[in-house]
């Protein structure tokens, strides 16, 4: 079930919430929307789910336009809105039944799907309770169950793990990954580790525009700056700045050396090298030649956090 988004723009008054966005999502892909608050993630999702139309641009879900075949498109989509709104006066089973009915499921299917969702989302213990009495974690699961009750081809989840504890987050992520194999999943988040853990592809959105598009690994490599290594050696020298640092600096590709700390003959340096170079082997050989003792050698990779920070604070 592919989603094709072309030149999507949505303005609220003067402000452009979404500014000329285009992207494709294909079946079996888990796409993550990443961006600071107010970047346009939620607005994009509201357009995809037919809650409101865009000012300009088109969205096609499985070849059907969201404006012309809105009802058909909505049948295929399961949606967990931001802040997970729920009817607090309904109990869990009734609510799932209600959602299923609105999706046009027949009575016999509803019972089966209800059971399955209660099982998949771990709602056995609370299935007869009113939603208003549930903890935030359970409510989030009810929201997910509701989104998946009609076995949709497309799942759109706005911050699916907000309010969950770490164990639940892992569970939900696994669930999303599992679902993502057969379905098309779009989720938004501002938790970067979540993107790395669940998404096949990331769209970083800032000020209504797509500023990066690719796999998490690809983005990390693309925005990787100079190489940076931390090295810790033990050597009986009086002044490491005089005796060790110059030797490090003499290696090819090294652009800078900085002493981080020194205690009891243990010296810690940060070594920067040119982008794309790998000086670990040379460093090791140098240490052996000088008869220092190598305690630590580690390469710092650019995290998605840094990529995100770079891209969304540039302006």
């Amino acid at each position: 079930m592919s989603i094709i988004v072309r030149d999507l723009t949505k303005t609220y008054g003067e402000q452009k919430a979404v500014d000329n966005i285009s992207f494709d999502v294909s079946t079996g892909e888990v796409l993550g929307f990443l961006g600071p608050n107010g970047a346009g993630k939620t607005t994009t999702m509201k357009i995809l789910t037919c809650y409101m139309p865009p000012n300009t641009g088109t969205v096609e879900v499985d070849g059907m336009s969201i404006t012309e075949n809105s009802l058909q498109v909505r049948k295929k989509i399961g949606y967990l809105p931001e802040n997970n709104p729920l009817y607090h006066d309904m109990n869990v089973l009734d609510y799932l039944e209600y959602s299923a009915q609105l999706h046009g499921l027949i009575a016999s299917d509803i019972k089966n799907r209800q059971k399955e969702m209660v099982h998949v989302c771990g709602l056995e213990d609370v299935r007869h309770k009113d939603i208003g009495e549930l903890s935030k974690g359970y409510r989030q699961r009810v929201g997910l169950a509701q989104a998946m009750i009609h076995d949709p081809d497309v799942l759109i989840l706005d911050e699916p793990t907000s309010g969950l504890d770490p164990n639940q987050i892992v569970e939900i992520r696994n669930l999303i990954k599992q679902l993502g194999r057969a379905k098309t999943v779009i989720l938004s988040t501002h938790i970067l580790s979540e993107v790395q853990a669940t998404c096949d592809r990331v769209l970083i959105i800032n000020d209504g525009k797509i500023v990066a598009d690719g796999t998490p690994q690809h983005l990390q490599e693309q925005f990787h700056g100079a190489e940076s290594l931390t090295i810790e050696v033990k050597a009986a020298v009086a002044d490491p700045l005089q005796s060790i640092a110059p030797k490090l600096r003499n290696l090819s590709a090294v652009s800078g050396v900085q002493l981080l700390s020194q205690t009891d003959g243990i010296h810690r340096f940060e070594v920067s090298a040119e982008k794309g170079s790998d000086i670990r082997e040379e460093l090791f050989k140098l240490v052996v030649k000088e008869k220092w003792v190598l305690l630590e050698l580690s390469r710092k990779s650019t995290s998605l956090e840094e990529v995100f920070h770079k891209l969304t604070t540039a302006a």
Binding site: Y79, E82, P85, L86
Partner: peptide, 14 residues
């Protein structure tokens, strides 16, 4: 107020 209108109007219901 509670936002459930968003759930309702994104279901295949007019």
């Amino acid at each position: 107020k509670t936002g459930t209108i968003e759930l309702l109007t994104t279901k295949p219901v007019q």
